[in-house]
């Protein structure tokens, strides 16, 4: 690891001030991804601002929705009684990610900021536009089994590795941030970005902004399932994952929420597929049709061509399990 200054912040204001002073500063909370990347010299911050002592850990119900402090641990959120009961998609997605130990360390804010697991991003001897803009994308014509089928550009075909993000986008969550210029709320849909020609930017967050909380509006979903397909039965990143949430009135779909992980540079909300399900009766045909709609515009890059089939299959299966048909 490169040497860095280590600063423990005790207030939000001090933390933002400490990050603003140093152009190459980073916040550290759980550290599970940042330290990993620092050890491999993929990220080389010159200052770490430790925010663990900030009072941002609370989880509370707000207007039937949910407020989750940015420093709430992934495990705490996954076990939280209200979340398990009212937002099971989030609990299931969190428990599908990483390991029990990592979930005890990783925070909600850190999970939002998790960087891609593209092996070229991690290997400093290979070109990577995300790591070193302008050097090229090694995955484009390389080993791209884990890579994007939606929204990729020749600059980057990496995927966002988070499970939590998939559930959050399906749940219409928002991210509360605080920075030197004040506070703002960013919709989950807008928080992560597609690579475009600036794959070095994962999110629209400004460097000096601190995530303070995630909020989720009241959920009407009655039937939920988070389905993750991976190369081993636990402790692996998704080949494809699907968050499926339905509000069913008898067999009629009143509301549908669908999002996918492992397929794009950001958690991938399937809005058109959701619309196609609205008002329909639950059936394999309807699910299949939604999956077909969801797959429009998908593109494989060789090793990941299988996702063109696995993704719609997983959508159908997730809906099937959610609706218990």
């Amino acid at each position: 690891m490169k040497q860095f200054q280590y600063i423990r912040s005790v207030s939000q204001k001090a933390a933002i001030s400490a990050i603003t002073q140093e152009p190459k500063a980073k916040f550290v909370a759980g550290g599970t991804n940042l330290l990993d990347l620092m050890k491999r010299h993929v990220m080389t911050p010159e200052r770490l601002v430790d925010i663990n002592k900030l009072p941002l850990r609370d989880i509370k119900e707000e207007n039937k929705g949910l407020h989750i402090g940015a420093l709430a641990l992934n495990s705490t959120v996954a076990e939280h009684a209200t979340i398990v009961k009212k937002f099971p998609l989030l609990a299931e997605a969190l428990n599908a990610g990483a390991s029990a130990q990592l979930r005890n360390m990783a925070t909600v804010g850190g999970n939002l900021m998790q960087r891609t697991r593209c092996p070229y991003f991690y290997d400093t001897t290979t070109p990577c536009n995300k790591r070193e803009p302008g050097t090229g994308c090694s995955a484009l014509n390389g080993f791209n089994r884990m890579h994007a089928i939606f929204g990729a550009t020749p600059h980057c075909i990496a995927v966002n590795p988070s499970d939590m993000n998939v559930a959050l986008i399906a749940l219409d969550a928002s991210v509360q941030v605080s920075g030197p210029k004040g506070d703002r709320i960013i919709k989950m849909q807008d928080f992560h970005r597609l690579p475009g020609d600036q794959p070095e930017k994962d999110t629209i967050l400004d460097k000096n902004e601190l995530i303070t909380a995630v909020t989720i509006p009241a959920s009407t979903l009655t039937h939920n399932h988070y389905l993750k397909v991976r190369d081993r039965n636990s402790y692996a990143f998704a080949l494809v994952s699907v968050a499926a949430g339905l509000n069913l009135d008898g067999k009629t779909i009143k509301v549908a929420r669908l999002a996918m992980g492992g397929v794009a540079h950001k958690p991938w909300r399937l809005t058109a597929a959701e619309q196609s399900l609205q008002g329909k009766q639950v059936s394999i045909e309807a699910f299949q049709q939604a999956a077909d709609i969801a797959m429009q515009g998908a593109k494989g890059y060789g090793h990941n061509d299988f996702k063109l089939k696995l993704a719609p299959n997983t959508i159908v299966e997730a809906l099937k399990i959610a609706s218990r048909i």
Binding site: V28, G31, L35, D36, S99, Q101, L102, N104, M105
Partner: peptide, 22 residues
Amino acid sequence: YGQCGACTVHVDGQRVNSCLTL
């Protein structure tokens, strides 16, 4: 890198990977 669990310890009673925390 937090990928094997051999370094698991309890911090304030919770199991964590001691390799990924300063």
